[in-house]
Amino acid sequence: MTDRVVPATARQRRRPTKQGVVLSEELIVETAMRLIEEHGAEALSVRRLGRALGADPSSLYRYFRHTDDLMLAVADELIGRTLRSWRPTGDWRADLRDLGLRMHAGALAHPRAAVLSSHRVTGRDHEIQAVETIIGVLRDAGFPDAEAVRIYHAFVDQALAFAALDSASTALPRPAREAEAAVWRATYARLPADTHPHIAATARHLVADMPRSSYPMALDLLLSAAAARLAGIRDGTDT
């Protein structure tokens, strides 16, 4: 794609595509997400998208300037799907934990798209809503503005980092995933105590724990630290 786009008011396609559907930004993003999971980054080509939509590839320029513009829309849609499934309760710590876990689960549901988009800043509607919402949760909890931003930053970066890490693992072919998990049993669990005493002592725990994501634990640690900072702010011991 190139840097040309039709104004929003002129984007609506009046006639159905060859497959009988009317193009929209939502349909293109949904199709792009499906193709990314099937083919990876190569899916974001005008020709492949046009073929999947049954549309002239040039018609995609009515909605997106170039493939990176489409990639940002995909990233924003992943955020939107998380927000649409989340309901706050008023308990800031429980709400952020629930939101973080939903962000992580949403990434694993679309692992290839998450790997490609987790590091992007979209500036689009869903991302703006997420920033507003999370900072609002923190400010309502009593965090001063600067502290709310710092915790927001740590919370989001942690969630996105684990989303990319665990999505990359999920996107591996199954034999590769199984081979990596087996390393903990085949290699680490067999290391002798006289040369590797700490690994040998904890081997059964390594075998049980390491194949799983550590995100829930990391998230709990972050929220515990944030709660401790908030308590310090309230009693005047945190400077």
Rank of each mutant, 00 (worst) to 15 (best):
T2G: 08
R4N: 11
V6P: 07
A10T: 10
P16N: 12
K18A: 15
V21Y: 14
V22R: 15
V22F: 15
L23I: 12
S24C: 09
I28V: 05
T31K: 05
A32W: 02
A32K: 00
R34V: 01
I36P: 05
E42D: 15
E42Q: 09
L44F: 00
L44N: 00
S45V: 02
V46C: 04
L49D: 01
R51P: 13
L53M: 04
L53A: 04
L53P: 14
D56E: 13
D56W: 07
F64P: 04
D69I: 08
M71F: 11
M71D: 06
A73D: 14
V74E: 00
A75H: 01
A75Y: 03
E77Q: 15
R84E: 14
S85Y: 03
R87S: 15
R87L: 15
G90Q: 05
D91W: 04
D98Q: 14
L99V: 11
M103F: 08
L108W: 03
H110R: 13
H110C: 05
P111W: 05
A113K: 03
A114H: 03
A114T: 06
S117P: 02
H119Q: 01
R120K: 07
R120M: 02
H126K: 10
I128P: 06
I128K: 10
A130S: 09
A130M: 12
T133R: 15
I134C: 06
G136S: 15
D140P: 10
A146W: 10
E147T: 13
R150T: 11
Y152F: 14
H153V: 13
A154E: 14
A154Q: 15
F155A: 03
F155K: 02
F155Q: 04
F162T: 01
A164I: 04
T170E: 12
T170C: 03
A171K: 00
P173E: 01
A176F: 13
E178M: 13
E178A: 14
E178L: 15
A179Y: 07
A181F: 07
W184F: 15
Y188R: 10
L191V: 11
A193H: 14
P197V: 08
I199E: 01
A200I: 12
A203H: 09
R204C: 06
H205I: 13
V207S: 03
A208F: 08
M210V: 11
P211A: 05
P211T: 06
P211L: 01
P216K: 02
P216M: 01
A218E: 05
D220V: 08
L221H: 03
L221R: 06
S224V: 06
A227M: 06
A227H: 11
R229V: 11
R229W: 09
L230G: 04
L230S: 00
G232R: 01
G232T: 07
R234M: 08
D235L: 12
T237Y: 02
D238K: 11
D238R: 11
T239W: 09
